[in-house]
Every structure is written in structure tokens, then in C-alpha cells.
Nucleic acid binder design. Structure first.
Lengths: 149, 149
DNA sequence: CTCGCTGCAAAAAATTTGCACATTG
DNA sequence: CAATGTGCAAATTTTTTGCAGCGAG
């Protein structure tokens, strides 16, 4: 049950669109990200690929992540210092919200409903701040983990 | 014009309160953080102290940051991978919002007005998610930098 | 005095860079 | 065939750990 319906296709077309080549290492990274329910570190991605019989250098993982990142295809999640596939159209310039379960580590990605309002709403004295992007990380416990407890 | 009125006093009493000793290295780190308008990396803090004639090992900076962090006295800002002084009372368990100017690097810290509502409001289907903490990073341009442009 | 904290030395981990070769389009 | 991207080796940078001695309370 991949978190992203067709992240692979989505990512590959974005890559092409940006004039990048579809290579095996890139495919491998994209696939691993697509299937992972939790954010992965560069090392995690590398081992994941290795575990699946794939062969790729960690260095390439870094480079590929950086490429994907510039295309908005992955998000670096600060609070856990790892990367997660991102399929939201970042075209509208806002950002997205991550629900991070501190128990199972799973990450849900959601569009920030009304990005700029978060910033502006609660502080009228900061209203002059022009919002380019927003990143929201919500740490907590997902329903499943609550049930287990 | 320190961003934090009396961060030094605030931090020191929090440290004591938690049974920690007030040492010179800790004082130095707290002061640098209090006076910095932008988030600093461990290295940045170290050089800043050195520049002021202070003498401290980077290792200590790491350890001190970790202590301060556990007391909620500093926040690690993911999108810039640096630390910023934090004076908000984190007692209410929510979190805080950072306005980060991508032009000058300055950071404003604000309490998240209605933390859980951010998460719950915009996705009723995720309502089962129990929120422990929220981190919001708003990237954009501050009024001053807009004026300059 | 005593225990916590620091500095120093060193190890471990993470990230970046240079370059020759392989591969995609 | 012509870039572009990869692997490998190695350098850098960042972060962690162990331990003996200093110093705050």
C-alpha cells in the first residue's frame, strides 16, 4: 500500500520535463521513495535499494535527492532529518504539511489548506511578511498507534 | 537590538530550575543566541564566541545545545538547519512558528495561535491524529527586505 | 568536597568533490 | 555521437564518544 498512487510515473515525467535523463539509479531511488511509508535518510535509501538487490552508490543517492528536491519531488523533513516522496503540485508556491507519527514514524503528506493565512491570521503585526513557502510538521500519534496503546 | 528582551535571564533560570549549573561556556552560548537575529549552526555559535574573545570547544557547543534543546530553550530550524533562541513558554505543549526571511536570514518566533486547529481544521479525515507538537516554518521576505527591493 | 561539565583527542558518520568511464536519448 | 550521469576514491565537514581534570555550588 504505497502512500503515493503513482509517484513513480509522476516523478519520471517531471524529471523528463526538466530535461533530466531517466536512469536506473534514479528509477531505483524514486521507487524506494514511492513505496516507503516513512521518510528515509540517504543511507536508508541506499540500503533499501541494496536490500532489493539493486546496486547504487550512496554518492549518487545524494546527487539524485538533490535533483529531486530541486524539482519539488521530495521533501526534506526537518524534525526527523529524512526525505519523503512528495507528489503535491508545488506550483501554487505554498507548501505542504506533514503529519508525523512519533510512534511508528509514518508520514502523511497533506497540502496546507490556506498557507498564508496561517502566517498572517494570527499576527496582524507581521502582516507585512510576504510568504513564499510554508512547511508544517505536525508531530503526534496516528490513529493506528493510538489503538495499539 | 536583541530579538529577545531578556533571553539570558530566562534561559539561566530555566537551567537552574532544571538542576543544571551555570557555567561560563553555557553563558557564552546563551548570550550569542540571545543576540543573534538569525539562527546559528553549532559552528556558527562557536566562531561567534571565538570572535568575541571567548574560548570554548565546539564539542561543548554541541552538548550545550542539546541541553538547551531539551529544555525548549532553543529550536532547531529544519529548513535552514540551524538553532535559534526560543523564549516561548512551551508548557502548553504545542509549538511555535518561525517566520524566516530568505533574504536576510532573520528569524521571528511566534506562538502558533491555535496549533491543533491547523492540523485538524483542514483535514477532517485525519481528525484521529493526536497532536503532540507543531512546527511551522514560514519562508518569505520580511518587510524591511521588501522595502530594499 | 563532590559531582557535573568541560576540553582534548580521536573515532565515527555524513556530505561533498574530482575525474575517468559508462549510459541515455 | 554527445552530453549527462554514475561509480570510485578521497577529502571535508559534521557529530559523537571516552576520559582525565577543572570548577560551580
Amino acid at each position: 500500500m504505497p502512500e503515493h498512487p503513482d509517484y513513480e510515473g509522476f516523478a519520471l515525467s517531471k524529471l523528463k520535463e526538466a530535461g533530466h535523463r531517466i536512469t536506473m539509479p534514479r528509477l531505483a531511488v524514486v521507487r524506494v521513495l514511492a513505496r516507503s511509508e516513512r521518510p528515509l535518510t540517504p543511507n536508508g535509501i541506499h540500503s533499501e535499494i541494496a536490500a532489493t538487490g539493486g546496486k547504487i552508490d550512496v554518492v549518487s543517492v545524494y546527487r539524485i535527492l538533490s535533483t529531486l528536491s530541486s524539482l519539488g519531488l521530495v521533501h526534506h523533513i526537518g524534525s526527523v532529518d529524512a526525505y519523503s516522496a512528495c507528489q503535491l503540485d508545488t506550483g501554487h508556491g505554498h507548501g505542504c504539511e506533514h503529519l508525523i507519527c512519533t510512534s511508528c514514524g509514518r508520514v502523511e503528506e497533506l497540502p496546507v489548506a490556506d498557507a498564508s493565512s496561517i502566517a498572517v491570521t494570527d499576527q496582524s503585526d507581521k502582516a507585512g511578511f510576504s510568504v513564499q513557502a510554508i512547511r508544517v510538521e505536525v508531530l503526534g500519534t496516528c490513529p493506528e498507534c493510538q489503538a495499539e496503546a
